[in-house]
Design a protein around this nucleic acid. Structure first.
Lengths: 110, 110
DNA sequence: CCGCTGGATCGATGGATGTCAACATAGACG
DNA sequence: CGTCTATGTTGACATCCATCGATCCAGCGG
């Protein structure tokens, strides 16, 4: 849903207030991370060896398989994860530029 | 709602997967930032001169006054903002340790 | 071609959420 | 005390959303 190139969009929150449009864009990403199940799925992908994980590796989060699929779709639509089918399995990996955008917004460079 | 001391809780997302409990805690913060109006309010406070802002300084975000108050309450409950009444006005400021916790979680190491 | 498995989609449902108007509360000031 | 302004609270309402069972689709192995 969101173009990955549009991500490094905003100065740190502490330096200037967000425009209405930027707020919509960035809020969509925070919203995607704002569910415990989705955050755990994202965490499992982000911390998985090789930077990517098969759905089968991460789907033990206490909800049904359709729900897992639903949440992964939300994370994809928010631009946080990318997916690729290789044979039988589908692999997810973190979209690196997006994390950088979030980090910049929260001003990690102290 | 959330104890401020509980905030610097988690290693970076890329280093280890979140526990279920930590996911609930951190997701609540992301969720609070996951609304465009709330994110703009938070941004206005964070970028305001002196590190704090009166509600009257930030309430022009396109929604009614009760809605602004409602969103500020959510941000308070998530532990992201603190408020203090001084005379006629109520001032909000960013809870610094919380931002640090979020930043650590998103740390891209480098 | 067939069945099996991994994963996505659909439809339904109960609960959460954003919004507002109306009202309540808290200081300031007379 | 009375009134004005700045915020918070309440109640109602429409919409969104997380979840599940059922179903569907895509590869793989026989």
């Amino acid at each position: 849903m969101l173009a990955p190139e549009a991500v490094p969009c905003c100065p740190p929150l502490t330096s200037a207030e967000l425009s209405e449009a930027d707020a919509v864009t960035m809020a969509a990403m925070f919203k995607a991370l704002g569910d415990p199940v989705r955050l755990r799925l994202f965490s499992k992908v982000a911390s998985h060896e090789g930077g990517e994980a098969c759905v089968c590796d991460i789907q033990d989060v206490g909800v049904s398989q359709p729900t897992v699929s639903h949440h992964l779709k939300k994370l994809r639509e928010a631009g946080l994860l990318a997916s690729e089918r290789r044979g039988t399995w589908v692999y997810y990996r973190v979209e690196p530029s997006v994390l950088a955008g979030l980090a910049q917004l929260l001003d990690l460079n102290r």
